[in-house]
Design a protein around this nucleic acid. Structure first.
Lengths: 190, 190
DNA sequence: ATAGGCGATGGGACTTGGTCCCATCACTGT
DNA sequence: ACAGTGATGGGACCAAGTCCCATCGCCTAT
């Protein structure tokens, strides 16, 4: 039995990803996920607060990385420069393995409204974390919130490119590129 | 019996708002909501896709208003001017009655993570609708998406002020004000 | 080595959100 | 009076999520 083998959490994530890919998110049961991981429903909910979260596991770390990256930016950094520092810090969390399963994850999330909803909440969390860090630097609203959402837009754009197999650039380069494009687009708004 | 009385949907919304205010969202059951409205669980789910939606009923109309407002903006309008037109069009959907129960709704939503999640999804919907309408005007990405999120930020800011009893300004005025503040903040970003 | 202490797990009862299907009721036009 | 239509009631059913307790394996102190 695999009951007492280590890395239970990781086994649950892998089992969930496999089953979601095979039968879809809706047609997969938490009990099935736990069974494939050699565990039970009880243990699943001890590791994840709900079924959706198994696909977004570890994204709370991103908030901390974003904030610490902004905190660590030099004092003379402009808001957007600080945001760029936060994004760069967060980029370290994205492994090549994550890049490999990226297309599968995207397909699963895009085909389920519950998962898109959770994704939207995560984006808000990113924005909130960055805005808070920016305010710690003395940047007032609404500039802090605006810069933070610019960061989220750059991040989502860059991530979408990064997981696309036809794009082999590094994530940090993509982040800088997308943030630059957004910065350039600002002047065309009005 | 009230079984065949009209406005079943409205009765369900009122019953839900009352019960959420009295006992909280989590401690209120769909069966209880239906009972207070003189209906049953079956009928509740015939009017709303899920329990959360009873608090966001009619927000899909906002997407259409935002889009049609942007579509109706003059050809020479800049992206932000078009967004302003969309926001102004959407403002017509906010009645004084909605303003009165605003603080209650805010408290209920802020105290429940499921509801904040749904709210985040609604904001994404607003942004998507506005970005799509802006692209119809020939505005390319990422400018369209950026302008759309500026609109969402202005909208949420303005709405928060509007429902605050200590602020008696009109929503359209607040929208113009917040959008102006955001526009001014842009130059301070970098 | 033995006895406990501790954290992780299994397992089952339970509540609730949500789906499905069918019978029933009221209204409408013929 | 009659049939058709749309909204409702009601019950069976499934899966998500909560709660509680027994159990298991490991670790440590004596």
């Amino acid at each position: 039995m695999s009951r007492w083998e280590p890395r239970a959490r990781e086994r649950l994530v892998r089992a969930a990803a496999e089953l979601f890919d095979e039968h879809g998110y809706d047609s997969t049961t938490v009990v099935q996920i736990a069974q494939r991981a050699g565990l039970t429903k009880s243990t699943f909910f001890r590791h994840f607060p709900d079924k959706r979260e198994v696909l977004f596991a570890g994204q709370d770390v991103l908030c901390e990385l974003l904030a610490s990256g902004i905190d660590a930016a030099p004092d003379e950094a402009t808001p957007l420069t600080a945001v760029a520092a936060g994004l760069e810090a967060a980029a370290g969390n994205f492994t090549p393995e994550l890049r490999a399963i990226g297309p599968v994850l995207r397909a699963v999330v895009e085909n389920n409204s519950d998962l898109r909803e959770r994704e939207a909440l995560k984006h808000h969390s990113f924005a909130d974390a960055m805005a808070l860090a920016l305010r710690r630097r003395g940047i007032a609203e609404p500039a802090a919130g605006l810069a933070a959402w610019l960061g989220v837009l750059a991040f989502t754009d860059a991530y979408a490119c990064w997981v696309d197999p036809s794009c082999d650039q590094e994530l940090t380069a993509l982040l800088r590129l997308k943030l630059g494009e957004l910065r350039a687009a600002i002047s065309s708004l009005d």
